[in-house]
Design a protein around this nucleic acid. Structure first.
Lengths: 221, 221
DNA sequence: TGTACATCAGTGAACGCGCGTTCACTGATGTAC
DNA sequence: TGTACATCAGTGAACGCGCGTTCACTGATGTAC
């Protein structure tokens, strides 16, 4: 088998040719494309593998069909990321549901965030591990942090804690970013894969959260 | 001018054809290649732009010549990164030269690290911003942290501070990683580019360092 | 109830691109006799 | 001192690859008369 033949047969494989949608149900393909893209991401963990061709093949459709539903590759990748961001955001919300102590809520959010990365490294890498310029502009700026990460709730908790005297008074947005950066650094390194003699991810998460929570407490005059 | 002609003329541009090295001075080209690669990195800030062809063009040489000095692209990129890591390591050492208080040394290292990222965002992105798999295996594991980042000195300072009672006793390697992760998270986000209404990088750096330094102090029983 | 027709969901082939890498070569440089 | 020769530093053309995207098309599906 020549390399060319091999490639051809692989291209034919995928999921087999997909049956054409009924009239008016063209939108179904859009969903299937996004689902296939996410699956590809899971297998490879690399946004570069989200090629139009690979996705089309996985869905069982030809590349041009993608353009019936997305203007270009950028838009497709953006949509995939957008969904993941929302998923993460609601996961964070779920993690603090029912908790009323703001400090505890802050802590839980951090923990849940790191755990999302640890359990979905491929997705995390796509969300924040890549180059910024491969993400459409909408993602590149502040909107990323406020809209996507849902910083609002965290800032609210920080403010509440400050009001209650559990935290030294300061700019909550600034503090919010610092906390996020720290947790993101931890997560992104864990997602990169830890070395053989590293402490367990759990230990590192605990230690980071512990350090941060102490670091932001009110200080003796 | 057709696109093809344009490409051709651009290819001819670069730095002009380079004169051939004298007998025995073939190694000169190796240096020039690395220098050109670094320059390309500065312009684009993206390891993907380190293509064999782009580098060859910048040096004023044809692509195959690169292979006289590097086995493949991976080796070249590795060497470029390796040099940057050493640069950063010695920069960190310089930042604490003459300081004897271990806590102060720890703080200064963190600050210097973040500043390196802020002033050399393109380089930082190449060192830690990319995908792990684009970096040769040597870089991917623990060796990265110990050899490249020179964690030894930081661990030494942490240990000294623990011995002096300035820090609660704990595994210094674990703490070392946590501190690095936090500073890395900060740096990598700043390097990504900050949004319009962000606090200044300097403020964020101060705040992060301040939080961490408080977080690791001994705690009241 | 039957048929012409517009619409819709795709297809197939091709475009030009830049890439890493290989291969057979060239021609200047230095060295041995 | 002159010349044949080995070596060394490169060149030029080509390889096959996968990519995003475009374009003219096809053929099933539903609808209007």
């Amino acid at each position: 088998m020549t390399p060319t033949e091999l490639t051809a047969s692989v291209a034919v494989a995928g999921e087999g040719r997909r049956s054409r949608a009924r009239r008016g149900e063209g939108g179904r393909l859009r969903e299937d494309i996004l689902a296939a893209a996410e699956e590809l991401l899971l297998k490879s963990g690399d946004a570069d593998s989200l090629s139009i061709r690979a996705i089309a093949n996985a869905v069982g459709v030809t590349p041009p069909s993608i353009y019936l539903h997305f203007a270009d590759r950028n838009e497709l990748v953006f949509e995939v990321c957008d969904r993941k961001w929302r998923e993460l955001a609601s996961l964070l919300d779920a993690a603090v549901a029912g908790l009323s102590d703001p400090l505890e809520r802050i802590e839980r959010r951090g923990r849940a965030y790191a755990e999302f990365g640890i359990t979905h490294p491929e997705h995390y890498r796509v969300l924040l591990g890549g180059r910024a310029d491969e993400i459409p502009e909408k993602h590149a700026d502040q909107a990323l942090l406020t809209d996507r990460l849902g910083f609002g709730p965290l800032v609210a908790d920080l403010t509440e804690a400050m009001d209650g005297g559990q935290l030294a008074r300061s700019d909550p947005w600034e503090l919010c970013r610092v906390l996020f950066f720290a947790i993101h650094g931890l997560t992104s390194m864990l997602v990169r894969g830890s070395g053989p003699d590293w402490p367990s991810p759990e230990r590192l998460v605990e230690r980071m959260i512990d350090t941060l929570m102490w670091g932001i407490r009110p200080r003796p005059a």
